[in-house]
């Protein structure tokens, strides 16, 4: 950002280190704002689920449908994958490929187990006649949980891309910025899952 040093005296006064903040900070901040807007989108799905959670139209309720053991395993997978994703970002900062690639591979396996468990759960629900068309409750449920699942699936593809890019291009600053954005994304998905398993599954199964 050396091209914009003359016309930003306010910035120069603010940070004596010199001019604009580094590109890593700007990229991270921009991605953080994207994540917050994504969370706001999820909160709209949460609101519609909360409003419609009693509208079962005579169909099965959450208490009859939800399998908490399955949800517990899914939660463990995402939680541990968040941890291994943190290990991967440590590996990227230290430019240590053994740590980075192993931790990313572990993150991928845990995320893939999560997605496959969720697909199996959805297929089981649809097979017992509790698909998204059965009631407003199930429509809201499949929209909310499925949207998170789609995010995880997209995150898995992004993860593989990052592994390949680090392998092919090394720890260039732009690649490291992408790795940082990926780990932010993955941690944010875990935060959404915390709200999801508490509000949808645990409260839903208790009612």
């Amino acid at each position: 950002m050396s091209a914009t040093h003359a016309d930003h005296q306010g910035h120069a006064a603010r940070s004596p280190g010199g001019g604009m903040p580094s590109k890593r900070i700007i990229v991270g901040y921009g991605f953080w704002i994207f994540l917050l807007s994504d969370i706001i989108m999820f909160s709209a799905f949460f609101a519609s689920y909360a409003v419609l959670s009693d509208a079962t139209a005579g169909g099965p309720t959450g208490q009859q449908l939800f399998d908490l053991t399955n949800v517990g395993i899914e939660t463990m997978c995402l939680l541990l994958s968040s941890f291994t994703c943190g290990l991967a970002s440590i590996g990227a900062q230290r430019k240590n490929s053994a740590i980075f690639q192993t931790a990313m591979a572990a993150t991928f396996v845990l995320g893939a187990v999560f997605v496959s468990l969720e697909i199996r759960e959805f297929a089981g629900l649809a097979a017992q006649g509790a698909g998204p068309t059965r009631s407003a409750f199930l429509t809201a449920f499949f929209t909310l949980v499925g949207c998170h699942g789609l995010h995880v699936t997209g995150g898995l593809m992004w993860l593989l891309t990052m592994m390949a890019q680090v392998l092919a291009k090394g720890y260039r600053p732009d690649i490291l910025r992408r790795v940082m954005c990926f780990s932010l994304f993955w941690h944010a998905l875990d935060i959404i899952w915390v709200a999801l398993f508490s509000v949808v599954y645990l409260i839903g199964a208790g009612q």
Binding site: R14, S15, P16, G17, P21, S22, R24, I25, V27, G28, Y29, F31, W32, L79, L80, S82, F83, G86, L87, S89, I90, Q93, R94, M180, S183, L184, H187
Partner: peptide, 30 residues
């Protein structure tokens, strides 16, 4: 982001942990 000036008015990107990135933070969080 490691080039922190003398006093703490610089910014940190979300996800970056200041100067020392330790496994301990992640372990406590986990």
């Amino acid at each position: 982001s490691d080039e922190t000036p003398e006093f703490g008015t610089s910014d940190v990107a979300p996800g970056d942990e200041g100067s020392e990135a330790g496994i301990a933070t992640y372990l406590v969080g986990l």
